[in-house]
Write a protein that binds this DNA or RNA. Structure first.
Lengths: 206, 206, 206, 206
DNA sequence: GATGAATGAGCGTTCATTCAT
DNA sequence: TATGAATGAACGCTCATTCAT
């Protein structure tokens, strides 16, 4: 087996093991046993346990990030087009997560509590996402598409929604229709929960 | 020192240590050293490492859950009152989290990746939250306050929002005004992000 | 068993093991097995393998160094007394080496090749010895007891003699009379190897 | 490259590596990397790590031993000639050591602590040296050139002197004049350290 | 002969837990 | 009840050596 293939094989086996057991409970032995290679072989391809885990997480994170197409929201942007593009981005993320559930499980649960360093890296990544969303909200406001509001907090809310939905999608084995999830989420985010009746009442009293 | 006090002392020290280092990096040694008791003493009060951690997480989870007052949403309910009560509930949760940041850090980061069992417990807890929210949404729809929609997904979205905001509140040391956070979140959730202009455009095209 | 005794016990067992097998071939397992303690116990008393070895070598080196009484060699010093004191110092060193042959074997063979760091430490120690001897030779010259000559090289020669003799004393199990060894060495060093006949001949021709 | 050359190349690279890192810290990897051959190739030329080290040490030891010309010390031997020949032998040894400092470092430090077996071999070699010296001293006594004395012990002293001086010569990078070293050593050994004044005093009292 | 991927025995160290005092 | 010395299973990692190509 050539070098690249063997590497790939160990990586994919490791992803499974980490996803099943979490970082700390996954032993190098588990990985090499399932990959049917000797312990030493593992270390021919990866610096150490931490390194292979990092590589897995980083690769997946990047594959998600690469799926996000930038959305042009110049003031005269067509709101319907913007919405479609947002929806496409979300769908792509959901699809990639569903395509590699083990990797997603890794990212959403195994990756936490690895160590202080790794926690910081993850937080930094989510910060970037939030910053991206914040800028998008700003552009949306400029284009008069988005109601003015606390953009930082809204960015965190959006991040939280996506993270939670993705976590749920992979933790429940039940087949889910990605489009349905994305549409329900977008519906909530764009229009809010309330009926006009409720809004009127709140505004009147509020 | 009497039994209960000693127990309490070890618990509170353990909370700090777990919050600082995470479950796996926290050593029993760290805890007993800081509590100034002998190693053996620890085991007089707690079954094992896992048990004390579970107790801490459970206690905090319950203190949060206890802060949630049930909201009556009979069909004729006053929307403004319902909103105020929702807001009060949220504020209470935020306050309790900010009051015990170590415990919150425990719940939101240290508690993940402990082991497969614990992960299941946490998921089950969040499921309960989601179920509660789902029922509330149902009542809201019945009372014509909430626009009909996919309640399960919406419940997850709301859970995600709260989790993420609380995580951010405790991870950023910066003083934050809980009321501001809660209001921004509620504003997003009730009215959505979009301006009427955008909605009209989307509706026209979509 | 109290802390100090247990420590002492492990130390002495470790000395044997290191002496028998050398640093690299000695396994922690060998030490704890022979000390009849658990592996973990070892690490309660010593940082790591390197640390216990260092402690053993250092202790022995210091016990040897402490046996050397300073010799006053003011210009009017009585040569016979000086010689007696030198002899006493040497005898004390030889006795201490013979009293702890395992430690001596440690110092003279196991201690080399441990790692680059440790090698440097040992060299530095021997440098100090050589420096001490060099100063003594200088005083001896000033007191007109010692023939002028290259003091640095002479100091190394003397160091070499003592090291080699001690090595031989411990590597040959045969009972040796320390006094005989010391006297033979002193005879060589003070008077040299040659007869007056040989010296005269060499001087005449050289 | 033909077999012999390749072998030679690996040997010389190995000498460097062993000299730099010592036996245990030198990895086969270090050797093959620097020799620019594959790991497997190494084992085509040498049995194992131990074997190549042994070969290096043996070769150097023999090159030193070969430099020693036998000295005729029949009873009527000219003392001055004997001294010159001794001096020549010593100079040759010093020169060979200085010519291959890596090999010398190997012999004087890396070779110790390899394992119990190798230690025995080295001791046996030094024993031969000592035996040779002992015989020479005996001849010297017979020729009335050497003062009677404990020949075995004297032989060890001489061995120690030479070993220590050679070690110092290679460990101090400073340029040294071999002749100066040899002459200082011979001066010490032939005439001893003491002035006639000191000797007289010692004899009177002792 | 040459390669270098693969092997796996081996070892140092950690740390949750126990138990005699 | 409190202590803290002792335990030993567990695990990550190294590196000399082998062997299919």
């Amino acid at each position: 087996m050539d070098r690249a293939k063997r590497r790939e094989q160990i990586l994919s086996v490791a992803a499974e093991v980490f996803a099943e057991k979490g970082y700390h409970d996954a032993r190098i032995d588990d990985i090499v046993a399932r990959a049917k290679v000797a312990r030493g072989t593992f270390y021919l391809y990866f610096e150490d346990k931490r390194a292979i885990f990092e590589e897995l997480v980083d690769a997946f994170v990047h594959s998600l990030a690469d799926g996000i197409a930038p959305i042009e929201t110049v003031p005269e942007a067509d709101p319907a087009r913007v919405m479609r593009e947002v929806r496409t981005n979300l769908l792509r993320i959901v699809e990639r997560v569903l395509a590699k559930p083990a990797m997603a499980r890794l990212l959403f649960s195994a990756a936490l509590g690895v160590d202080a360093d790794f926690d910081r890296r993850l937080l930094a990544f989510y910060d970037e996402i939030a910053a991206l969303l914040e800028r998008s909200l700003e552009q949306g406001e400029d284009a008069l598409l988005v109601r003015p509001g606390h953009r930082r907090i809204r960015a965190f809310c959006l991040t939280g929604i996506v993270k939670e939905l993705l976590s749920q999608l992979i933790s429940r084995r039940a087949a889910v229709d990605p489009a349905e999830v994305v549409d329900a989420m977008l519906d909530l985010v764009t229009d809010g929960l309330f009926t006009d009746l409720a809004r009127a009442a709140v505004r009147a009293s509020g």
